[in-house]
């Protein structure tokens, strides 16, 4: 019953997202295609974070690292004249997974505040590495020479085509993560989150499972980074700034930790509010802050908790 309601909500969200480009064209508001594409890209990043946060209990405060690795992978390859999207994105995902493996191997041995600080510290290291890379614009970043190419099948310079590609990837990622958390693997990491002593006593060593989840999460977020730099067409180390990690974390918490649709809702709410409010006043953060505090206080299970079936495991 509950899972059916959840499925309906997901399908409704999908349908709405499918309708955005024609509706925007009809209303001559093409800007919304752009905004929603950005929302979905951050939605992917937030879903990837929720995999380890909501189901694995790992509060990564450095998820922007993988956005950065993904974005740098695409831009650096493009800089050297390699524009093949499949190759670029494969490197973005693979590179992010490697970085996640290194960060995870160290951080997962700790927990709580130490885990948060280690993930943050690694991300700061990468951020300063990005700033120091003068070849790629250093502090200022650089223009993406050309968007990723897919043998002429999909043209990312066409906003609508790019939009539908991002939507497809988002849907695939949500489906993948949902299957993951319900598989044996998912049950193992959720069990470790629920009660690690119990897991050890029945013979689960949590470490390899948590590490694998961390690496998968990093890979997905790296893909989001590859999409993001194609979206902005401009690379900047700011992709890896710690405030960016905080934003992604906030999207997950706002939307609903450990829910399927929640992180996407969180990304939507945060970015749309940011957009609307910044149109009204340049002091928009003064309004946004209290709104977010209220949202967290009164929707303790996140926005997804307000939807029918939103609290599905």
């Amino acid at each position: 019953m509950r899972s059916r309601a959840r499925k309906l909500v997901l399908l409704a969200m999908l349908a709405l997202l499918v309708l955005v480009p024609p509706a925007a064209a009809l209303l001559h508001q093409l800007f919304y295609v752009d905004l929603l594409r950005r929302v979905m890209i951050f939605g992917i990043a937030a879903v990837s974070l929720d995999l380890i946060l909501g189901y694995g209990g790992m509060v990564s405060f450095g998820h922007a690292a993988y956005l950065g690795v993904g974005a740098y992978a695409v831009t650096v390859l493009a800089y050297y004249g390699i524009h093949d999207g499949l190759l670029q994105w494969a490197v973005a995902i693979g590179g992010s997974m490697l970085v996640a493996l290194a960060i995870g191997a160290v951080s997962i041995r700790t927990s709580g505040i130490y885990f948060i600080m280690i993930t943050l510290a690694f991300t700061q290291m990468l951020y300063y590495l990005g700033i120091s890379l003068d070849v790629f614009g250093g502090d200022n970043g650089m223009r993406l020479p050309e968007r990723s190419q897919f043998f002429g099948l999909i043209n990312l310079n066409n906003g609508t085509e790019f939009y539908y590609l991002v939507l497809t990837i988002l849907a695939a990622v949500v489906l993948l993560v949902q299957r993951l958390v319900e598989s044996r693997f998912g049950m193992a990491i959720r069990a470790a989150k629920s009660n690690e002593a119990r897991s050890r006593a029945i013979g689960f060593s949590p470490y390899p499972y948590k590490l694998a989840a961390f690496v998968i999460s990093g890979g997905i977020c790296g893909l989001a980074g590859a999409l993001l730099v194609n979206h902005t067409a401009y690379l900047t180390p700011d992709f890896m700034q710690w405030t960016r990690s905080g934003e992604i974390l906030f999207m997950v918490i706002l939307g609903g930790v450990g829910t399927t649709a929640g992180p996407v809702l969180g990304a939507f709410t945060l970015l749309v509010l940011e957009d609307v409010l910044s149109g009204w006043t340049e002091h928009w953060q003064i309004i946004l802050g209290p709104l977010l505090v209220l949202a967290v206080l009164f929707a303790k299970r996140g926005l997804a908790g307000l939807l029918p079936g939103g609290r599905g495991g």
């Binding site: 993951l180 319900e182 598989s183 044996r184 049950m187 629920s194 009660n195 006593a201 013979g203 689960f204």
Partner: peptide, 30 residues
């Protein structure tokens, strides 16, 4: 010491799973 957020059956099924070899199975619903 149990998994409080899971059903009784889930709890025991997890114990069975722990004994059934590695859990690097990613797709099928447990």
């Amino acid at each position: 010491s149990i998994y409080r957020e899971f059903t009784a059956l889930d709890n025991v099924a997890l114990a069975v799973q722990a004994r059934a070899g590695h859990s690097f199975r990613f797709w099928r619903r447990a």
